[in-house]
Nucleic acid binder design. Sequence first.
RNA 1: CGGGGUGUAGCGCAGCUUGGUAGCGCACUCGCUUUGGGAGCGAGGGGCCGCAGGUUCAAAUCCUGUCACCCCGACCA
Length: 590
Amino acid sequence: MSLRMSTLFVRTLRDDPADAEVPSHRLLIRGGYIRRIAPGVYSWLPLGMAVLRNVERVVREEMDGIGAQEVHFPALIPREIFEASGRWAAYGDGLFRLHDRKNADYLLAPTHEELFTLLVKSELSSYKDFPLSLYQIQTKYRDEARPRAGILRGREFIMKDSYSFDLTDEGLAASYKAHRDAYERIFTRLGFDYRIVFAVSGAMGGSASEEFLAPTPVGEDTFVQCTNCDYAANTEAVEIAVPLPMTATEHPAQLVLDTPDTPTIATLVDRLNSIDDLPRPAAGQFSAADTLKNVVLKTRMPGTDKWQLLVVGVPGDREVDLKRLSGQFEPVEVAQAEPADFATAPGLVKGYIGPQILADLEIRYLVDPTVTNGSAWVTGANVAGKHAAFVVRGRDFTPDGEIGAVEIRDGDRCSRCGSPLQISNGIELGHVFQLGRKYAEVFGLTALGPDGKPVTITMGSYGVGVTRAVAAVAEQTLDERGLCWPREIAPADVHIVPAHKNDTVIFAEAERITAELEVLGVRVLLDDRKASPGVKFADSELLGVPTILIIGRGLADGVVELRDRRTGDRRDVPVADAVAEVLAEVRTPR
RNA sequence: CGGGGUGUAGCGCAGCUUGGUAGCGCACUCGCUUUGGGAGCGAGGGGCCGCAGGUUCAAAUCCUGUCACCCCGACCA
């Protein structure tokens, strides 16, 4: 198969589109791969389709390779199906909703858990039918509040999603590993530099959840990597090293201090350091890290409108990371408490809140693990203008639980080996997740065991962002001249450039080489336009086909030029060897 | 939802302050020349100046309203 620039439906742009910021977005537009239709909604042109189909092919091959079977569900779904799982309400504004002519409610599916589960439930009923893995490559719709970066975060996007169905925990572990291994092969073949990081399991339960992230500054996910061991985690799921627990009796008794006009941590610390007879911490002076900050939040069950107050305690030198908390509370919503919420709990004195009275107020109190058992803090005394020192966890207050709440900082210590952690951004390429039995329980998905008793199925959930992968590969491989596709997904194997506007000898030679390569199964993009060499060179670099063959002035001496798009290496080869040389390049694994 | 910005030819932009009937570059069509790094000259085609209302003899330009889009943040199974 070969493509010809003269007839290919593509127009490259010399200028960057004004509305694109992210490099991959700019180049995909300029190269004529995609065009914007609406925010987060894009058309795919022939070159883009070629890359997209290649990504899909790799994904299919690897999914088929682990015995997963392809199905295809509709994107258009009646309300009842999402009503059954409670997500018609829970999804909120993120769902595209519409009506049919009879005014019945429909939605465009943001994800397909319900359909996979219901299909298996309706078709299978015996333990003999399991284990089973199903997958589909489907368009998903999510009405994102703010789509961005072209196809990196769209409102319409293609995703490969699959589910495994097993009878036992061991079976689930095996299915999970098979998917995880398949994902490693997929992302390697797609040419990614990627990391596998621990992710949040969420309230769906389940024991294991890992994300495949492509490190890049434009990524929306933040993750940490240990500089020493192989620990890596999404910041939503990270566990950092915490101080050892202490013994409560080490500390003096609680001491209430007059601290007028100290509503902020900074003013409090200044005041503490000015009290002469107050025992100083080991560091000599009080710092924000010696104080316990209590942040008032509220939580709400999805689909309800009743908020409940929640107080989270963190060291005063740390911020509460609301995003990290949301991940752990999912699907329960978490938000900052507002003045109206404070009004419902008169016991809370803003600026002077301490955990000592929260149990009496029946307000749930969680602390970050850095607030270790037996540790002593300066915190609010629940009276305006007063703080308390030597407030000890386990002696003066007992939290209802621990939750990773502090904003992770570069240099925080690894919970496994104590070495510094490094923070980076990445694009989420894929997610593997042991759902467990909770979902199957909701839908009553069981199989009859050999003893005639029903067994609840345990499930795994696995996703790959297919359209996102196209943008992510582009983002990781592009350079200042343009795109730079890995061979496996490039729209062609070789870009042949006759470096002349219309020289008949040069064009004839380009045609001959194209025809020969085509017979050998090489995918050729031939620039047969009557355009000047500079235009063709620039476009060949913009479009990013991995190998470029230039037929031009050297032809008189019997040579053509072979270039490697990525490395920029160029060498002359005898025209008689051109086909063989290109073939060698194309077949060289990289 | 909060903050900032922008809507003029397919793309990138100027014109708006100080109203006078729309312009530049690229792209596109034709001719000649050129031919290994986005060629030159000449001749062309292409515009509900986001939309609606208002002021005015006259509105891309001034006023009011409205819509859309982009960026940052919040949010994101």
